[in-house]
Computed example of a mutant assay.
Amino acid sequence: MRPTSAHERTTDVTPRRRRARGSRVPRVHRRLAGRTPTGREYGRAEAVLPDDFEIVSPTGERRDGPQIRADLRNGHGAFADSDPEFEIRVANVRTRVERDEHCLVTYEEGQRIDGDWDWRVSSGLFRRAADAPNGVEWVHLHETRLSEDAEPPT
């Protein structure tokens, strides 16, 4: 891994992966805030969350691809009443390992609900998939909540 500056650490991915990751978070944000018409973004999300996808949440709960896809559909507008407005921030994105078919990425994510930020550090494993948007799909996501006294990323 060659990144040395903060900017390099947050952008050390191929342009295709950078575009894929950068475009996905705002879409999820809009869906949960209730600002995307129902059904508009589902096809793309379902295409990158295969059946064998697994997420381990900060509480230790494990969910697979079908469960997460259902959560996204059922979560439309879940935080529409958040004051201030619901927001997701992603910082310190780093490619940790990249092989022919897989790429391991770490990042920090904050979610603001009703003014309170919940920060976590995540490890996401991706694999090449010719039929997925941008040629990449999620395999695994592991989230660990940062302690309340931890400094939020900049």
Rank of each mutant, 00 (worst) to 15 (best):
V139N: 01
P26Q: 07
V97Y: 00
R27N: 04
T38D: 12
E98G: 05
S5A: 10
H142N: 15
A150V: 09
S147I: 03
R35I: 01
I88C: 04
V136G: 01
T95Y: 00
L104R: 07
R31V: 07
R62I: 14
A130R: 15
F79M: 13
A6G: 04
D118M: 12
P153E: 08
Q67A: 15
R145N: 14
H7M: 09
E108F: 07
W117R: 13
R145Y: 07
R63I: 15
L32R: 08
G43D: 05
S123R: 05
E61Y: 05
R18H: 00
L146R: 10
E101P: 00
L146H: 01
T10G: 15
T10K: 14
W117V: 08
M1I: 06
A6N: 12
E41S: 11
D118P: 04
G77R: 03
G115Y: 02
T106V: 15
P84T: 11
H102D: 00
H142D: 15
A6S: 14
R18K: 05
H29N: 14
G75R: 08
L32H: 10
E148S: 13
S122Q: 10
A20Q: 14
G60H: 10
G135P: 04
P15E: 03
R40M: 08
A78C: 02
G34R: 02
S23K: 05
R62H: 10
R120P: 02
R127T: 07
R128P: 07
D149H: 14
P66I: 05
Q111C: 04
G115D: 01
S23D: 06
E54T: 11
R94C: 15
A80C: 05
S5L: 03
P152D: 01
M1E: 11
P58K: 11
V48W: 03
F53G: 00
T36R: 11
A129C: 11
E108M: 10
T154N: 13
S123E: 03
P133Y: 08
V25Q: 06
S5E: 07
Q111I: 01
P152Y: 01
E54C: 12
V136T: 09
S123V: 02
R112G: 01
S82F: 06
D131C: 07
G77P: 06
E108K: 13
T4G: 09
H142F: 14
E85V: 15
A78D: 02
R27C: 06
E151M: 02
Y42K: 02
L146V: 04
R73Y: 03
T38P: 12
V48R: 03
G43R: 10
R145A: 15
T59Q: 14
D52G: 00
R120Y: 02
G22T: 06
H29P: 04
F53N: 01
T36S: 13
R128I: 06
S122G: 05
E143W: 06
V139T: 06
Y107P: 00
A150Y: 07
A132M: 08
H29K: 13
G65C: 03
T95W: 00
G34N: 04
M1Q: 07
V97N: 00
E151K: 02
